[in-house]
């Protein structure tokens, strides 16, 4: 599934610094998108933490580009889990949200971002493992094997989980469309 272009080529010909730079340019947007899909509050800042953790583990990068991706999203997965655990221990703070204020009207920027927030809203409504498998397969573009490695499950289990997640997503989207109409 993954078709890495920047990291293509024999890894031994790239210096570690250049390889890290290529990995950041290629995979940082996906890590940020994955963390956003997982509901992390500050995905850009956590992305930096993920790459710093990757920098501290140069010996654990094995298996070429796919191995690098797997390790990177394993770190991102752990960071997301840490984030949700930490957030569950802290009191929930409710901030003022303009979109919930009936006294204001939506801006053009809000309308443009509606599709993206709609996807996030749909993901939020799914079970955490469904959200996890969809984010890893679609946002991070990981293979079934890499997704299984990140989620610490078998490939068959991931495949079944993925199927159930897609059906749940479709049900949710259809219900949302029916509610609008």
């Amino acid at each position: 599934m993954s078709e890495t272009t920047v990291l293509a080529g024999p890894p031994e010909r790239l210096r570690p610094r250049d390889r890290f730079t290529a990995a950041y340019r290629e995979l940082a947007p996906k890590v940020t998108g994955y963390l956003r899909a997982r509901g992390v509050d500050d995905p850009e800042a956590v992305t930096q933490e993920v790459f710093l953790a990757l920098l501290a583990k140069p010996d654990e990068v094995r298996g070429g580009d796919e191995g690098l991706r797997t390790l990177l999203f394993t770190i991102a997965h752990a960071k997301a889990v840490d984030h949700h655990r930490r957030r569950s221990r802290t009191p929930a703070l409710v901030e003022y949200e303009p979109e919930h204020d009936r006294r204001v009207t939506a801006s053009a920027e809000d309308d443009a971002l509606e599709a993206q927030t709609g996807v996030l809203a749909m993901l939020t409504a799914l079970a955490p493992e469904y959200r996890e498998v969809l984010a890893l397969r679609i946002v991070a573009e990981l293979t079934l094997e890499s997704t299984a490695a990140v989620m610490n499950r078998s490939v068959g289990a991931v495949k079944q989980l993925q199927r159930r997640a897609l059906i749940a997503l479709r049900t949710r989207v259809a219900a949302e469309a029916g509610a609008r109409s």
Binding site: P29, G33, Q116, L123
Partner: peptide, 10 residues
């Protein structure tokens, strides 16, 4: 959903 992972690196 796939569009979440597109764009430039932060």
């Amino acid at each position: 959903l796939h569009a979440l992972g597109e764009g430039r690196a932060p």
